[in-house]
């Protein structure tokens, strides 16, 4: 019950901040920009000119699942930036302003304080991603061709696990500093470092969460889940749980002092 109150408080705060309006809108825009610009690319090239008379450029029309991957990579880049930006102050800011003390002085466990925040942000981000996926799917059906909806649902599931991992890192970093800017820097730094490490030791780190997105095209195209995708999602889930527990311990230690 207490947890539910905290969760409702977070959702209410996001609604008051207009996050429940602008985050879905931004995600929709991120998802539809690429299908639209890919579709209109020949037209844009033609009308802006700059090409010599009689030049012929054949741009092959990408397959529907390739266009969908473009939307996903937009979300993977700018969407994650938005996620890091909206979550950077959720605990650190409250600790700086003293709101966290007001809440934690009551008999609220650190664990429910953190998981309520985590769940509230996950609700917002997953709903936004789903709406964005639907928008992208709509445009792909309209402009490029058929793409199986079941595959999109499956892709959403696995991509959601990756986003969950990102949110967990951000929540963990939130407890390590009182300055939102530092939290943002640490979150993005960790993600970039992980990406780099995974690229360098690619053969050893098949299960690395950073690899989830690179396994998605197969799933989107064939509707078949590669074994490595199971492993990397499993890795992401375990690491997320560790980050959440770590955040609880860290917050407890910080607030005791």
């Amino acid at each position: 019950m207490q947890w539910l109150t905290l969760y409702k408080k977070e959702c209410l705060e996001s609604a008051r901040n207009f996050k429940w309006i602008w985050v879905p809108l931004v995600f929709i825009l991120l998802c539809i920009t690429d299908p639209l610009s890919t579709y209109y690319l020949p037209l844009i090239l033609e009308s802006t000119g700059g090409l010599p008379e009689g030049a012929v450029i054949e741009i092959p029309t990408p397959l529907p699942f390739e266009v969908f991957m473009m939307s996903i990579s937009q979300l993977n880049l700018l969407g994650i930036l938005v996620i890091a930006l909206i979550t950077m102050g959720t605990i650190s800011g409250e600790r700086k302003d003293g709101v966290a003390e007001l809440i934690l002085v009551k008999p609220v466990s650190y664990f429910s304080y953190i998981t309520a925040k985590w769940t509230a942000y996950m609700t917002l981000i997953l709903s936004s991603t789903f709406i964005g996926f639907l928008a992208s799917w709509y445009y792909i059906e309209l402009l490029f061709g058929d793409l199986s909806f079941t595959n999109i649902l499956l892709t959403f599931l696995f991509f959601g696990i990756w986003l969950m991992f990102v949110v967990s890192i951000s929540i963990f970093m939130n407890t390590s500093s009182k300055l939102p800017g530092i939290v943002l820097f640490l979150t993005l730094g960790t993600l970039i470092a992980m990406n780099l490490g995974t690229t360098i030791f690619s053969t050893y780190l098949e299960w690395s969460p950073s690899k989830i997105v690179s396994y998605l095209p197969v799933l989107l195209n064939n509707g078949y889940v590669p074994e490595d995708l199971w492993f990397s999602s499993f890795g992401a889930a375990i690491l997320s749980a560790l980050f959440i527990f770590g955040a609880t311990l860290l917050l407890k230690r910080r607030e005791m002092v």
């Binding site: 207009f18 309006i21 602008w22 809108l25 931004v26 825009l29």
Partner: peptide, 11 residues
């Protein structure tokens, strides 16, 4: 696309 941009601006 235009509607979404407009909504974002109005919000």
């Amino acid at each position: 696309l235009f509607i979404i941009q407009l909504l974002l601006m109005i919000t």
